[in-house]
Amino acid sequence: ATVGSICDLNLKIPEINSSDMSAHVTSPSGRVTEAEIVPMGKNSHCVRFVPQEMGVHTVSVKYRGQHVTGSPFQFTVG
């Protein structure tokens, strides 16, 4: 992922509605921003955001307030 470019995290989660999901990204400096959740068809969801700084980011994806399997996810920008 690169700073200022759209970053997509694709998840396969069976039998949940994306409208019941939420996602937030925490940057290396601790800034928390909301991420967009895009339905991608049956059981597939895309978490979309634009990182604003380099370094390790943490993406928390929740369904009805509970982390989904594997969340929070970490990835490096830059």
Rank of each mutant, 00 (worst) to 15 (best):
A1E: 08
A1H: 15
T2G: 04
T2F: 14
V3H: 01
V3Y: 07
V3N: 07
V3L: 06
V3M: 05
V3E: 05
V3G: 04
G4P: 01
G4I: 06
S5E: 14
S5I: 02
S5N: 10
S5L: 03
S5A: 06
I6L: 05
I6G: 00
I6R: 07
I6T: 08
I6C: 08
C7V: 11
C7F: 14
D8N: 12
L9F: 00
N10S: 14
K12H: 07
K12M: 12
K12Q: 12
I13Q: 02
I13P: 00
I13W: 00
I13C: 00
I13S: 02
I13D: 02
I13H: 00
I13K: 00
P14D: 03
P14M: 03
P14C: 03
P14A: 06
P14Q: 01
P14Y: 01
P14T: 03
P14N: 05
P14L: 03
E15D: 13
E15T: 07
E15W: 05
E15G: 15
E15N: 13
E15P: 03
I16T: 08
I16S: 07
I16V: 10
I16L: 09
I16P: 02
I16Y: 11
I16D: 01
N17P: 14
N17V: 05
N17C: 08
N17A: 10
N17K: 12
N17R: 10
S18Q: 03
S18L: 05
S18M: 05
M21T: 03
S22T: 13
A23E: 02
A23M: 01
A23V: 03
A23W: 00
A23Y: 00
A23L: 00
H24I: 07
H24V: 09
H24Q: 09
V25M: 02
V25E: 04
V25D: 08
T26P: 01
T26R: 08
T26W: 06
T26D: 11
T26Q: 08
T26H: 12
S27F: 06
P28R: 03
S29T: 15
S29Y: 04
R31H: 13
R31V: 12
R31G: 14
R31E: 12
V32R: 11
V32Y: 12
V32S: 09
V32H: 07
T33K: 06
T33A: 11
T33S: 11
T33C: 10
T33D: 12
E34L: 12
E34I: 14
E34M: 10
A35P: 11
I37T: 07
V38G: 08
P39M: 08
P39Y: 07
P39T: 12
M40R: 15
M40I: 06
M40V: 10
G41T: 04
G41R: 11
G41P: 12
G41W: 03
K42Q: 07
K42T: 09
K42D: 12
K42P: 09
K42V: 07
K42E: 12
N43V: 06
N43L: 03
N43M: 07
N43W: 05
S44K: 13
S44N: 14
S44Y: 09
S44W: 05
S44V: 03
S44Q: 15
H45V: 14
H45I: 15
H45K: 10
H45S: 10
C46D: 15
C46M: 02
C46Q: 12
V47Y: 00
V47F: 03
V47L: 04
V47K: 00
V47N: 02
V47Q: 00
R48K: 08
R48N: 03
R48G: 00
R48E: 01
F49V: 07
F49E: 01
F49R: 01
F49L: 04
F49Q: 03
V50G: 02
V50K: 07
V50F: 04
V50H: 03
P51N: 07
P51R: 04
P51C: 02
P51V: 02
P51E: 05
P51S: 04
Q52D: 08
Q52Y: 08
Q52M: 14
Q52I: 06
Q52C: 08
Q52R: 10
E53N: 06
E53P: 00
E53T: 12
M54S: 15
M54Y: 06
G55F: 03
G55I: 00
G55Q: 02
G55K: 02
G55S: 07
G55C: 02
G55E: 05
V56I: 11
V56A: 12
V56M: 11
V56N: 11
V56G: 13
V56Y: 09
H57P: 01
H57Q: 10
H57C: 14
H57W: 08
H57E: 04
H57I: 08
T58K: 14
T58F: 13
T58A: 14
T58R: 13
T58L: 15
V59L: 02
V59R: 01
V59F: 01
V59S: 03
V59N: 02
V59E: 02
V59W: 02
V59G: 00
V59P: 01
V59C: 02
S60A: 12
S60N: 07
S60P: 13
S60I: 13
S60C: 10
V61L: 05
V61E: 01
V61P: 01
V61K: 00
V61Q: 02
V61S: 01
V61A: 10
K62N: 12
K62Q: 12
K62E: 14
K62G: 11
K62C: 08
K62D: 13
K62Y: 09
K62A: 12
Y63I: 13
Y63K: 11
Y63Q: 10
Y63T: 15
Y63F: 12
R64G: 13
R64I: 11
G65A: 10
G65I: 10
G65W: 07
Q66H: 09
Q66M: 10
Q66C: 10
Q66K: 11
H67F: 02
H67D: 10
H67W: 08
H67M: 07
V68K: 03
V68N: 03
V68G: 02
T69G: 12
T69I: 02
T69V: 04
G70N: 12
G70T: 09
G70E: 13
G70M: 10
G70H: 10
G70P: 07
S71M: 04
S71L: 02
S71C: 05
S71E: 04
S71N: 07
S71D: 06
F73T: 04
F73N: 01
F73S: 02
Q74M: 15
Q74W: 08
F75V: 15
F75M: 15
F75Q: 15
T76Q: 12
T76M: 06
T76D: 15
T76W: 03
T76C: 08
T76F: 09
T76V: 09
V77H: 00
V77T: 04
V77D: 05
V77R: 01
V77I: 11
V77P: 05
G78R: 04
G78K: 06
G78T: 05
G78H: 01
G78I: 01
G78N: 08
G78E: 03
G78V: 03
